[in-house]
């Protein structure tokens, strides 16, 4: 039987979480008495470390950065033109943020569908709240795409950092896409995304400052302020939800 979504996260009726050892008092004891090690293999961790060491030393990078496509264009639009390693580092991190904001837009679209069907809770978000954040995520994506073009980069490239941002976020989409998760459970995934996003913007601003990109710093600060607001909003909804849930129980 599938756990119904109300009340959230609490067992109802005859359903029971069976994952813990306490759910099987007799069999659980047998599990513990049976557990022994492979006598032929002592704990030393050396074999595991040595295997990993080989791959750590021999593996190539995840991938590389492509050369800028329009160097001429870059010189025109970015005041303090960048070249070489500096440009590559900046482009990789801008592309990372762009990928994150693009996925973030889709995550908010997913929660909007959940919200439309399941409704909200006391102290929870309205559809307008969620649309507002979704729209800002989208605007950030558009702004970063433009930034990449101004830097002479191809915004359709998946850079190494953009790729890893996608890997890091894999669980978020799983939580939001699952029809069994509640609005609050989806919001928790979004909180993880927002906190990571906020930290990502701070790093990007620091990098742009280091590279003397004052125009970009100004642009990024506006987005960063909005991300702080997103984090505060999502965190507030979740706090209201957990507080109400604890009172009910």
């Amino acid at each position: 039987m599938i756990q119904k979504k109300k009340p959230e996260g609490v067992s109802v009726g005859q359903q029971m979480n069976r994952t813990g050892i306490g759910a099987s008092p007799k069999d659980g004891k047998k599990m513990v008495e049976a557990a022994v090690a492979d006598e032929a293999a002592p704990v030393d961790g050396k074999k595991a470390t040595s295997m990993r060491r080989f791959y750590l030393e021999e593996s190539d990078a995840i991938g590389t950065m492509p050369p800028p496509t329009t160097v001429k264009g870059a010189a025109k639009t970015v005041k303090e033109a960048l070249t070489g390693t500096k440009a590559t580092v900046l482009i990789d991190k801008v592309a990372e943020r762009m990928a994150f904001e693009r996925t973030g837009t889709r995550l908010y679209e997913a929660i909007l569908t959940k919200h439309e069907v399941l409704g909200s809770f006391d102290g929870g978000p309205s559809a307008e709240d969620l649309k507002h954040i979704r729209d800002e995520e989208f605007e950030h994506f558009v702004m970063l795409k433009k930034t990449l073009e101004e830097l002479g980069a191809d915004p359709t490239v998946m850079t190494p950092s953009a790729d890893l941002a996608g890997v890091e976020g894999m669980g978020l989409g799983q939580v939001l896409g699952d029809p069994r998760t509640t609005l609050a459970q989806g919001l928790h995934a979004l909180l993880v995304a927002e906190v990571a996003d906020k930290a990502g913007w701070e790093l990007l601003i620091a990098l742009a400052q280091d590279l003397g990109q004052t125009q970009l710093v100004e642009r990024f600060r506006k987005a960063d302020a909005q991300e702080h607001e997103h984090t505060r909003m999502v965190g507030g909804w979740l706090a209201a939800h957990t507080s109400a849930a604890a009172k009910v129980v």
Partner: peptide
């Protein structure tokens, strides 16, 4: 060149949790 089944489980004793 080593067996992964030995490396990962060296001395492993399952414990609840």
């Amino acid at each position: 060149e080593g067996a992964p089944s030995e490396a990962i489980a060296a001395g492993y004793v399952w414990q609840p949790g």
